[in-house]
Design a binder for these strands. Structure first.
Lengths: 225, 225
DNA sequence: TTTAAAATATGATATTTGTCATACTTTAAT
DNA sequence: ATTAAAGTATGACAAATATCATATTTTAAA
């Protein structure tokens, strides 16, 4: 069993507030999992009974819409925690978590995390601030969905992907999403997403080479109507 | 100065966890305001420095979109608190709060609420659960904005308004929103909203009499494509 | 390696939604 | 009571987006 104390990613989440003793306790009760690309960590409606700490990899948080399409609500990367809201609300998961790359995650049982939560003020404050940030992001996201065109949302999303997940040596977006997944992020039909990517490509704002997307003119992307 | 102890609406919010002593302290430091219909309680970007408890009336929480339109993110009614997220994040308001009816609200300074928050476990847990509920609602709302048609969103909203705010003796919706505000809730142009209301009226699913809207067939509204 | 399946791309077309113009109705101010 | 302003309604049209069909390319399985 690896030591949480020596795990780098805990520095990036609410867990950074835990002290040595708490970290030892956590190392003792955690379970590590390897999740293959495309596999779920948990599904909407499932009782999770703990939180997952992402050690490696990126996952999408999705929600099934009434029309049968999966909407991607957010992306979560290494260092972040999954299932905090469900833990506090003591409710089943509202979203599914599915690996976009091979992942390594650690599961920490609810009882343990709630212990930290109740006894470590800094930890609980961190968790709450994270949830508050999520709420703010979600509200803004909602307004964008309601008020912006698909083209604007695509441009916003491409810029978000570059800023959040970085680029490869050839400047292409590091994170690899299928066209269907990208459409699921911006909330549109896959064909519309592909068509708009082609359009931005022809305009010279982005470059498409195979599956790779490279942003060439972020200012023009931002100013799209 | 009226006594918080005798105020009925505190039972409906996180404040129900406060004990007698805390209620006395709150009564001592609170400020009561009357807000006229159409007036703001606070605006997006403003530092609020406390929470508002709604004693009477309903307000809309709005966010200005890049395209200049006001999106209504949620409606808040008597018994609920405003500004909890900003208080915990220690950030300016993310949304504006504007009265939809004449309102009575009480302002409780941040320092006081944070005192309760840090010393009363049940109160802080209530606040957090409220914020978690808001997050869940916001995520669902976002998916609806991304995936449902304007007509479906209008139907959903009408049903929500009836279920949340009730009806008058003549069965018409109790809450009065202008067409522009209704459009701002569903995220569409005012003309589109008016046109779709007319369509639902012609179909016999709703009745329009002056400003009043009456739902006649909720099942058919729910099943709209 | 071959081959089937999945992903990407694009055209044709239908539908939805937004915009602008204008008329009518209600509300509120003088 | 009169009048201006705001709100509601509807037509005409343009733009955005979805859907269906089909071709091409890529991926992964046998």
């Amino acid at each position: 069993m690896s030591k949480c104390e020596q795990c780098i990613v805990r520095q990036f989440s609410s867990l950074k507030a835990l002290n040595k003793e708490e970290l030892l306790r956590m190392a003792d009760c955690k379970t590590s999992y390897t999740i293959k690309k495309g596999e779920p960590i948990f599904e909407e409606g499932e009782t999770v009974n703990g939180v997952y700490c992402i050690k490696e990899g990126v996952c999408k948080m999705t929600k099934l819409s009434d029309n049968g399409k999966d909407q991607i609500v957010k992306l979560v990367k290494s260092g972040e925690l999954l299932g905090q809201r469900s833990m506090i609300s003591d409710e089943p998961a509202n979203l599914s978590a599915v690996a976009l790359e091979d992942m390594e995650v650690c599961f920490i049982p609810r009882s343990e995390v709630m212990g930290f939560f109740n006894n470590n003020n800094q930890f609980s404050m961190n968790v709450m601030k994270t949830i508050c940030d999520d709420l703010k992001d979600s509200d803004s996201h909602m307004v964008n969905m309601a008020q912006k065109t698909v083209k604007q949302r695509l441009a916003d999303t491409l810029i978000y992907l570059e800023e959040t997940f970085g680029v490869n040596e050839d400047k292409s977006l590091h994170i690899q999403l299928s066209r269907e997944e990208l459409a699921g992020m911006i909330g549109t039909a896959t064909e519309s997403c592909i068509r708009l990517l082609s359009e931005l490509n022809k305009l010279g704002y982005i470059a498409l080479t195979g599956k790779k997307i490279t942003l060439l003119d972020k200012n023009k992307l931002k100013r799209l109507q």
